[in-house]
Simulated assay, not measured.
Amino acid sequence: MVHLLVADGNDRAGRARHLTVCDRTSAETYAGILRTLAPDAVCHLVAPADADAVLPLALAECDALVLTGSTLHVAEGGPAVTRQCELVRAALLAGLPVFGSCWGVQVAATIAGGRAGRNPRGPEYGLARAIRRSAAGAGHPLLDGRPPAWDAPAIHDDAVIDPPPGSRVLAGNDRLDVQAIEIRLGEGVFWGTQYHPELDLDEVAAMLRLSATGVVEAGLCRDEAALHAYADALRDLHGDPEGRPDLAWRLGITDEVLVPERRRREIKNFLDRLVRPRRAHG
């Protein structure tokens, strides 16, 4: 049995807003995927942004920590950010494997001495396109199974601007140099992606609706009606991926995004290549 601590990156307001468009929180989404990929996993959920949050079990009893996305901004600081930074730092110093997407990457990079903030090249909304391995990413187990270039779900304004000293940037694209990264702190290892391997297309659609103003302001849609039409198409493609090749063609979405096993490769690689070996060797 594998015990996974799943930390929701949102504060209470962020979780409530998320639930207006989704039927589950970000942590619940991750937990469901982790149980699918590792049927022997027991997921323990926590919301470390909250002042009254209590870990459901001690870090020493965990096999790994997973940190979700968030609407918070690391650069703005504040108690909700600091508490999450402290949890990730403690987990890494305790020797735990840690995985994070989007917000998780930004937190891990910050505590290790890097810098996260608004991406000067602009946001990515919907999909990060044409991601490619760096030289350091060639052969790295986090990216096992990925083709030479791939797309992935992405929703972010912020990103890792300056990677921490000693980290390994594993992948990037023309919008962002740090799309995947390995960070070591103490005895712990962090693997993460700025993109969201955990998100199904219906959840991407929901996140776009929450970000409608930002998408329009970035010039990616002419108006909110166009944004909602795009989100509708993503939702419909999710509902019938095999029966709507017209939508996949129109949206430029390939099997790396459509097929769950391919979209979630990084999460499975984390479990198989970091978490299970560590547990096996006690």
Results as ranks from 00 to 15, higher is better:
M1L: 10
M1V: 10
H3L: 01
L5N: 02
D8W: 06
R24M: 13
S26C: 07
T29N: 14
T29M: 12
I33Q: 08
T36R: 15
A47Q: 15
A47H: 15
A47F: 14
L55C: 09
L57C: 15
A58H: 14
A75Q: 15
A75K: 09
R83Q: 12
Q84E: 10
L87F: 07
L87C: 05
L92Q: 03
L92F: 06
F99M: 07
C102K: 01
G104T: 02
I111K: 00
A112R: 05
R121A: 14
G126D: 08
G126L: 03
R132A: 13
S134E: 08
A138M: 05
R146W: 13
A149N: 02
P153Q: 01
H156P: 00
D162C: 05
P164V: 06
G166D: 12
G166T: 12
S167L: 03
A171Q: 08
G172W: 06
N173P: 11
D174Q: 15
D174G: 11
D177M: 07
D177N: 12
V178C: 11
I181R: 05
Q194G: 00
Y195I: 07
D202N: 08
A205I: 00
R209A: 04
A212Q: 09
T213I: 04
T213S: 09
V216M: 08
E217Q: 09
L220V: 01
E224R: 03
E224D: 07
E224V: 08
A225G: 08
R235E: 10
L237V: 00
G243L: 10
L247Q: 06
L251Y: 00
L258C: 04
E261Y: 12
R264V: 02
R265C: 05
E266L: 06
I267V: 14
I267E: 14
V275W: 05
